[in-house]
């Protein structure tokens, strides 16, 4: 990357004819179009951003492994005591179990509900289609806390407050529309003549769905599921509003530990929980990337955002 910085900076100040001649030897489009101050700004900005990002990550990991760390560059000694005590004190097994249960149930339900709806939105025209699309779009666009508080009030009135059911239901609100928004462009790109051929050969709707569409949709469904998984595990606002001690997901448990009365728990305990959270997230992503290629994942993200 450093060599690239130099060359692109040089290109910017060179006369255009010369730049053209040199770029002929390179891959087309590799030449920088902006002048060197922009290049400097970009790389300085990137560097500052990554210094912060990596500093944040590494300091949490170091903190969680250090015995006591106050006035020095590094902790005096290292141990993994914080992990074992965090594991016992916060019943991490239970919390992780809750987190994964919520995430899996949310994925299954939102795919089952969202994919058929996405199919219709992609393939058919019907009255009120615009209104219905808008209705599905709203929960993705609105900040969770705006509809989360009325929703949580309803949950408490129904007697579902602090239960696992409430956490799952609340997380479905952004997830179902999210699956619909991600799957609609994916279904649109599948050639409809394949379905027509199946219909002509006498397949009914169910057969078209299970035998023809499902195999074609699997990559899209996997990508959507992973995004829902990441969103659900990371969802703070909605879960926090309805969860209780027995139904806290990992993020909410960390937040509660940080803000507990009396200045919160020891910093290292929280750091070790945060590391467990990041590791869980990474494992999810690594497992997920085995099934879905990263470019496809990013492409899905972009497509859904552009809607």
């Amino acid at each position: 990357m450093t060599t690239k910085t130099d060359t692109s900076g040089a290109y910017g100040v060179e006369p255009p004819t010369h730049a053209k001649g040199r770029s002929g030897a390179r891959a087309p489009g590799e030449r920088s179009l902006a002048a060197s101050p922009t290049t400097w700004f970009v790389w300085a900005g990137t560097a500052a951003f990554f210094i912060f990002l990596i500093g944040i990550l590494v300091s949490v990991v170091v903190d969680s492994l250090g015995k006591s760390w106050f006035n020095t560059w590094l902790p005096a000694s290292f141990s993994k005591d914080w992990y074992t005590s965090a594991w016992d004190q916060f019943e991490m097994t239970h919390i992780i179990g809750v987190t994964l249960t919520v995430a899996l149930v949310v994925i299954v339900i939102s795919v089952l509900v969202g994919v058929p709806a996405a199919y219709l939105l992609a393939r058919r025209n019907f009255p009120l289609k615009k209104t219905i699309t808008m209705l599905f779009l709203l929960p993705v666009l609105m900040p969770p806390i705006t509809y989360g508080i009325p929703l949580a009030t309803v949950m408490y009135n129904l007697g579902l407050g602090r239960t696992l059911t409430a956490v799952i239901l609340v997380n479905l609100v952004p997830s179902v529309p999210f699956v619909i928004m991600t799957m609609t462009p994916f279904i649109e790109q599948i050639n409809p003549t394949i379905e027509s051929a199946a219909r002509m050969s006498g397949a009914n709707m169910r057969k078209v769905f299970t035998k023809i569409l499902m195999p074609l949709l699997i990559p899209g469904i996997l990508a959507a599921s992973i995004l829902v998984l990441v969103r659900t595990v990371g969802m703070f606002d909605l879960t926090f509003l309805v969860s209780g001690p027995q139904s806290d997901t990992l993020v909410v448990a960390i937040y509660r530990a940080m803000t507990a009365a009396g200045g919160g728990e020891a910093r290292q305990l929280i750091s070790s929980m945060a590391v467990v959270y990041t590791l869980t997230m990474m494992v999810i992503l690594i497992v997920a990337l085995k099934f879905v290629s990263p470019t496809q994942l990013v492409a899905r993200v972009k497509e859904s955002r552009e809607d």
Partner: peptide
């Protein structure tokens, strides 16, 4: 995006 706000907060408190 995978870090989440809570871990970012904890990291900022320690790092900065």
């Amino acid at each position: 995006i995978t870090l989440g706000t809570v871990l970012t907060a904890q990291g900022l408190l320690i790092f900065a």
